Computed example of a mutant assay.
Amino acid sequence: MTGRAVSVWAVLDEADRAQWTYTPGVSVGPLVFGMSRHEAVAVMDGFVGDIAPAPRAIADTWLTRFRVPDRRPYRTAVLAFHDGTDGLFCVMVDARCGPQVILDGLRLVGRVPSEWEADFLAYALPRGIAPRYAPVTSY
């Protein structure tokens, strides 16, 4: 076998990531909560969006997988969940290959989990935010 092996743990360099701002309850980068799945695809410059019914979903829930077409491996960088009445309600960014998302100067993506957690708790707890953890299944 020839060729270069790609590490499954490879993390995209910060300089190679789009830079997004997270505004709670409003938007994540160009994705505005409440927008339709077709509006979401239209605003995601540089990404290819594949829309499909969400697996294991509640009725009328759609999942859009956004990928960067010229990046290898061709991984999903952003997942967006929509429903038929309220539009976009959830955005998940891949920590290894998705855009950098910044909340009040705090980098949320592509960091060592223990360092991120310490910084996030220092941000959240004084604001009365009680973080919750949940396992993420692949979509």
Rank of each mutant, 00 (worst) to 15 (best):
A95Q: 06
P131C: 08
L103H: 00
P126F: 01
P113W: 15
W62H: 08
D94W: 10
S114W: 10
G87V: 02
G87S: 04
F120P: 04
H38I: 07
V48S: 12
L108Y: 04
P135H: 15
V109T: 13
D16L: 15
R56L: 11
R107K: 11
R37L: 11
V48W: 14
G105C: 02
H82P: 00
V43G: 07
D70H: 14
V93E: 02
T64V: 15
L88H: 00
V43N: 07
T85R: 14
W62E: 05
D16E: 14
P73M: 14
M92Q: 10
P99V: 04
M44F: 06
R96L: 12
V101Q: 05
H82D: 07
P24T: 05
P99G: 04
V91S: 01
D104I: 08
P69G: 10
F81H: 10
F120D: 05
G84S: 15
A52C: 06
D16T: 09
V32I: 11
R132W: 05
L88S: 00
A130S: 12
H82A: 03
T85Y: 13
G49N: 07
Y22W: 11
V93K: 03
P113S: 13
L63I: 12
E117Q: 10
A95K: 00
R67G: 08
G84K: 15
A80P: 01
L88A: 01
A18F: 09
D60Y: 11
P55W: 12
M92L: 08
A134H: 03
H82S: 05
R72K: 13
L103D: 03
W20A: 03
V28P: 01
V109P: 01
R75L: 14
A59L: 10
P69L: 13
C97A: 12
R37C: 06
Y123I: 03
S27F: 03
E39S: 15
V26C: 03
Y123R: 04
Y133G: 09
T64M: 15
H82I: 02
V91W: 00
P69Q: 13
I51M: 10
C90Y: 11
R65C: 07
F47T: 01
H38N: 10
V32P: 02
F89R: 04
G49I: 09
T23N: 07
P55Q: 14
L103F: 03
L79Y: 14
P55G: 13
A59S: 11
V136P: 00
G87P: 00
P55R: 13
Y123G: 03
H82Y: 07
R127N: 06
P126I: 02
G29F: 07
